[in-house]
Design a protein around this nucleic acid. Structure first.
Length: 463
DNA sequence: GTTAGGG
DNA sequence: CCCTAAC
């Protein structure tokens, strides 16, 4: 059933949320999965939240909705334009790049003319012209986004209609609705009347009934009590199904189908309806998708290294002086990461560096390199030094405030365990870095600085 | 040749 | 990670 598919999507998204929020031993993995979740947020459900529904309430309520449909829908060109006023409320909810779609409300005919002219005259900044192809592409890209094509109208069976459909093979599509309407039985859904435009009327239905229908149709409850909103939501959900199923099942006997000449236009209309319902989701979903893609690509190397090396190297890092050459993969995967200069430090490498510093102290990078990074050709002594410098900075911020650490982890970098950073801080106390370096200074300054420096050195030596 | 430090 | 001055 279509509705069950929708519910499955909802459940899946809920499971994903649990997965994202659950703490896993692998810190890096959870870190990298938190970012997309935070970005996606409530975008996975179709009008799942009341705020979202209310946000588009004005769009679906009379008379604006009829206005937007009649004004914007162009069946012939399969395009529709969106006046800027319809975007304003959405821009408050999300910062979508609407700058590319500046529009002003004008007459319908003029709009259509401009739209048609736009194909030859180029872009007209006064109008927003979006071809339905764009949205079809978006719908294909965003697989788990429920659309109005997924609505469940099986509630008709659930409410125990007396007139069960003869010959119905379980398909829950608009044809069933049409048949039901023709049957004209006296159930609670007598008010489901079809007019000449294949529109269902819910005027006589109580709010509770509307809510129930909505729940069964969309798979979730809504706290929106506005009758108009519910009515139109259900109506257009059914209408969408109606048009689709009428097209695909026009050969079924007894089905109320439309004239063949209008089928093509109906298909366009159905698509356009879906586009109307989906247009506000499109930019955000695409944005999320791109960000997620980038996120996983940029951290792929690090996360793989983390997974591979998790739990292997703890305290006996002194032993593996020759066996760990493959912790970094920057050079091993030149095909996937072309011309990548940065070799991210894995946690085992950091641990080796910490051990080296604890053994030799700060500054003897060649010795550390000789003992701990003999097999790592790409880790030069200056690299060790640079990394230690970064570790110091990270550990300082770690101890400075836990908020800073949390922020860093949310940003995906600094996957170094806290105990390692604490160890770095301990070593930083023992082996101060940067070491005071005899700067090339003017003689006057040199005297002053050298005196204090020597004093400090004597003090430290005596102590 | 090695290291510190800036870029 | 690179460069360069300082060591």
């Amino acid at each position: 059933m279509l509705g069950k598919v929708g519910q499955k999507c909802k459940m899946q998204s809920a499971l994903d949320s649990l997965q994202y929020s659950s703490k896993t031993p692998n810190a890096s993995a959870s870190i990298f999965r938190q970012e997309p979740e935070q970005v996606v947020g409530g975008a996975s459900d179709y009008f799942a939240s009341e705020e979202e529904a209310i946000g588009v309430e004005h769009l679906l309520a009379e008379p604006e909705y009829d206005d937007i449909v009649d004004t914007l829908l162009d069946l012939k060109t399969c395009t529709f334009s969106v006046p800027e006023s319809y975007f304003k409320d959405f821009s408050a909810l999300e910062s979508v790049d609407h700058d590319a779609l500046p529009t002003t409300l004008t007459e319908v005919d003029e709009t259509r003319e401009k739209l048609l002219d736009g194909f030859s005259n180029g872009y007209d900044e006064n109008y927003c012209s979006i071809s339905c192809e764009d949205y079809l592409l978006d719908i294909e890209v965003e697989e788990e986004t429920p659309t109005l094509h997924d609505v469940d109208i099986s509630y008709i069976e659930d409410v125990n209609l007396e007139n069960q459909l003869a010959g119905s093979d379980g398909k829950n599509c608009g044809i069933d609705v049409l048949k039901l309407s023709d049957a004209r039985n006296s159930s609670d859904y007598d008010s489901l009347l079809l007019d000449n435009r294949n529109c269902l009327q819910f005027d006589d239905m109580s709010s509770d009934k509307l809510l129930e229908v909505f729940r069964k149709m969309f798979g979730h409850q809504t706290s929106v009590t506005d009758k108009q909103w519910l009515k139109h939501h259900i109506t257009f959900g059914l209408q969408n199904q109606d048009m689709k199923c009428s097209l695909v099942s026009s050969e079924i006997e007894g089905a109320k189908v439309l004239p063949p000449e209008s089928r093509e236009e109906l298909l366009k209309a159905s698509t356009a309806f879906a586009s109307v319902f989906n247009f506000r989701k499109k930019p955000r979903v695409q944005h999320v998708k791109r960000r997620e893609h980038i996120q996983w690509n940029s951290f792929k190397c690090l996360s793989e290294a983390q997974v591979d090396s998790s739990g292997i190297l703890s305290d006996q890092s002194n032993d593996n002086t020759t066996s760990e050459d493959d912790w970094t993969i920057g050079t091993e995967t030149p095909g996937t990461n072309q011309n990548r200069k940065h070799n991210y430090w894995s946690t085992p490498e950091v641990l080796k560096l910490v051990d080296g510093v604890s053994k030799y102290g700060v500054g003897r990078w060649t010795d550390i390199k000789r003992l701990y990074f003999q097999s790592s050709a790409h880790r030069s002594p200056p690299d060790l030094k640079d990394k230690w410098r970064n570790l110091l900075r990270a550990s300082r911020q770690c101890l400075k405030s836990r908020r800073g650490v949390a922020a860093k982890q949310n940003h995906g970098w600094s996957s170094i365990p806290h105990h390692v950073l604490n160890r770095v801080q301990e070593l930083a106390v023992i082996y101060p870095y940067p070491r005071k370096r005899r700067a090339r200074v003017l003689p006057t300054v040199f005297v002053a600085s050298s005196s204090t420096e020597s004093d400090n050195r004597c003090f430290s030596l005596n102590a």
